[in-house]
Simulated scan of single mutants.
Amino acid sequence: MTGLDNVLLKEVVVHRIGNPTRGESLQLSPHALTLNDPIVKGLLIKYFLSPFNDQECYRFTHLSDVQLNEVYQYTGAIFKDPAALLSKSQLIAQFLYGKSTHVKVKEGELYVARFDHVPFEGTEVPAIGIFKSETKETFLKVFPHGKSWEVIHEEGIDIRKLDKGCLIFDTNPDEGYKVCLVDTGAKQDTQYWVRDFLQVQPYADSYHNTHQYLDLCKDFIKNEYPEKFEVAKSDQIDLMNRSMDYFKNKEQFTETEFVEEVLFHPEVRDSFMEYKKHYENARQYEFGDGFDIHGAAVQRQQKVFKSVLKLDKNFHVYIHGRRDLIEKGYDEMTGKKYYKLFYDEEA
């Protein structure tokens, strides 16, 4: 998130959240932080808000009624009465503590903060942030000792990396608010934050549809495609490139068109559509037959669509297109595999 110059950090409460299955405690603070130092305020604003992508929005949900979502209720009460931040933050901490039972959930500090003038969708709105810091870094501190110097080590928080975060904007309350997320942990280990604690689902907008469909393509090509079909790594990269090129060159996504233009073989198409069903069921997310393609989502996914063919530790071949100009073979004399590349000019 950028454009944070006008953001006001109104109040912050910090609690200590352990893992109850390891006998770690919940330590609730009776007071908000004292924030008299403007430099500390500025650092906290940057630490809390910079990691968020405000184009990727979620909303609070519940199996029966969003009104039964605990975090939705607590944050809604703070929006209505800012003086309730301390008491509601304690309830939020107690609720998270009860969800922190997975063996890989780490102990850490939970921050509940209230902001004003946060830039969002062309305006500035109030927001509530819920953040958790789990990773501690070791720092060296140099200090004078008589006429010389001494060095000690201290543990602290790296303000360049937020482990987990949730930013709730005071907009669309009837639909579960608009929410942005940060979660740097492994998906299989930290679902407690998104699924069990926050209970959020993505807004079915053009950004999420674009981002999720490219994520689906990437997962299929990396996992299902080589398992079901005998394909070389260069074939996987070629399909990655064709998928990305479709989204880069189109303004509107149509599934039938995508399948015909990108997935050439009927067997691959059938396998992809079956994989898509499992993907949607696992995430409780349906794409529909078409949607507008969001350029920012394409750019973000392009960073993780790898087009590098790594051959042992000697060569990295970047493949950007024309799979027909790459030939794979096996040399019996050396007992090694090889790739033959055809080109016109050498740069």
Rank of each mutant, 00 (worst) to 15 (best):
N6P: 06
V7M: 07
K10C: 11
K10Y: 09
E11T: 07
V13T: 09
I17R: 01
H31M: 09
L35E: 06
N36M: 10
V40T: 13
G42T: 07
L44V: 05
I45F: 03
P51H: 06
D54T: 15
C57L: 15
Y58L: 10
L63E: 15
D65N: 15
L68Q: 15
Y72T: 06
G76R: 04
I78L: 08
L86H: 08
S89N: 07
Q90R: 15
L91I: 06
A93L: 03
F95I: 01
F95N: 12
K99G: 04
S100R: 07
T101L: 03
V103S: 08
V105K: 05
K106Y: 13
E109D: 15
Y111V: 01
A113Y: 04
R114W: 13
D116E: 15
V118H: 05
P119I: 06
I128D: 00
K132I: 08
F139M: 04
V142A: 12
V142H: 08
P144A: 04
P144M: 07
W149Q: 11
V151R: 06
H153Q: 14
E155T: 05
G156P: 05
K161R: 14
L162W: 04
L167M: 11
D170E: 15
N172P: 05
P173F: 09
E175C: 11
D183E: 07
T184Q: 12
W193R: 01
D196Q: 06
D196S: 08
L198H: 03
P202W: 00
A204Q: 06
S206A: 14
Y207V: 06
Y213N: 02
D215C: 11
D219F: 01
D219R: 11
F220T: 01
F229E: 05
Q236N: 10
D238M: 07
D238H: 14
Q252I: 14
T254I: 15
E255D: 14
E255G: 09
T256F: 08
T256V: 13
E260T: 10
H265I: 14
E267P: 03
V268C: 06
S271G: 10
F272P: 01
Y275G: 03
K276I: 02
K276Y: 09
R283E: 05
R283N: 09
R283D: 03
R283I: 01
F291M: 10
D292G: 11
Q301A: 04
F305G: 00
K310W: 00
L311Q: 00
L311P: 00
L311S: 00
N314T: 03
F315G: 00
H316F: 03
H316T: 00
I319V: 13
I319N: 00
H320D: 14
G321S: 14
R322C: 10
R322D: 15
R323I: 09
E327K: 13
Y330N: 08
E332K: 15
T334W: 04
G335P: 04
G335Y: 14
K340G: 02
Y343I: 11
E345Y: 15
E346Y: 13
